[in-house]
């Protein structure tokens, strides 16, 4: 299924082609910074930011395309409201093509402040796979208007890739060297039979007594360490041919 607009391969190539910035941080954060800048270029947008949130209330902006976008990203945490927080809480995208519209009543503090900084439209995408969620990716534009179909495909895919980069960062620090290149199947192609993968995530969560996020990260790390396809590992877990063990 190649050739789909906004597919994984396309987005990974866009990130790989994005030159690293002189002030980029090392490792995963650096990759997310490149992801944000690649997204700004491809969508196009005025700015893109990635924030990590947790069930216990932590809120951190981990990467942004530029300092102004980083400040806007952090604005919602200061004000305690905004599309990114709603996307995380509601587990669905929050697409606001005009901040001057009903957004003014939805976020009475955030909407006028973001507009004062030149933002006219915000599109927030949760970083999640089912029950596991890590945060949100926000796209900022300086003109009102909906995302085109292609921009929407791309933005959703950028969010999926950001989720994968964050998941892998939890389990394997070495992955940060090059999360979007190197191996033939760097970040797992999310096209094939997915039901078994998701079922395996639930099984591993109970096997190891961990959260869904960690179960997912452990499955990915196992597949990576064994140099096997994630879908094959998942199939073995569901068939009870494989049981993940606790860390020694």
């Amino acid at each position: 299924m190649t050739g789909i607009a906004g597919g994984w391969a396309e987005v990974q190539a866009l990130i790989a082609a994005e030159p690293p910035g002189v002030e980029d941080k090392a490792g995963v954060v650096g990759w997310l910074q490149r992801l944000c800048r690649a997204a700004v270029r491809a969508l196009p947008a005025r700015g893109v930011g990635v924030s990590v949130l947790s069930e216990s209330g932590e809120q951190v902006t981990v990467a942004a395309s530029d300092p102004a976008s980083e400040a806007i990203e952090e604005l919602q945490f200061t004000l305690g409201e905004g599309p990114c927080l709603d996307a995380y809480a509601g587990r669905r995208p929050v697409l606001t093509s005009n901040l001057a519209g009903e957004a003014m009543t939805r976020w009475p503090g955030y909407s006028p402040t973001a507009q004062a900084r030149g933002v006219r439209a915000v599109f927030a995408f949760p970083l999640q796979v089912g029950a596991a969620r890590l945060g949100a990716l926000d796209v900022y534009r300086d003109r009102p208007g909906a995302l085109s179909t292609r921009a929407l495909h791309l933005a959703l895919t950028f969010a999926e890739v950001a989720m994968a980069i964050l998941l892998d960062a939890q389990e394997r620090s070495g992955a940060a060297d090059d999360p979007v290149g190197g191996r033939g199947e760097p970040l797992d192609d999310p096209l094939d039979d997915r039901a078994e993968l998701w079922q395996a995530q639930g099984m591993v969560m109970i096997q190891l007594g961990v959260s869904m996020i960690e179960a997912m990260a452990r499955l990915r790390a196992y597949a990576y360490a064994q140099d096997r396809r994630l879908s094959d590992v998942a199939r073995d877990v569901v068939a009870r041919k494989l049981r993940l063990e606790h860390d020694p």
Partner: peptide
């Protein structure tokens, strides 16, 4: 995403 959660829940219950 809910569809994914349902599959994950099947896995949880199957394991338990």
């Amino acid at each position: 995403n809910t569809r994914i959660i349902i599959e994950q829940a099947k896995g949880v219950l199957a394991q338990i």
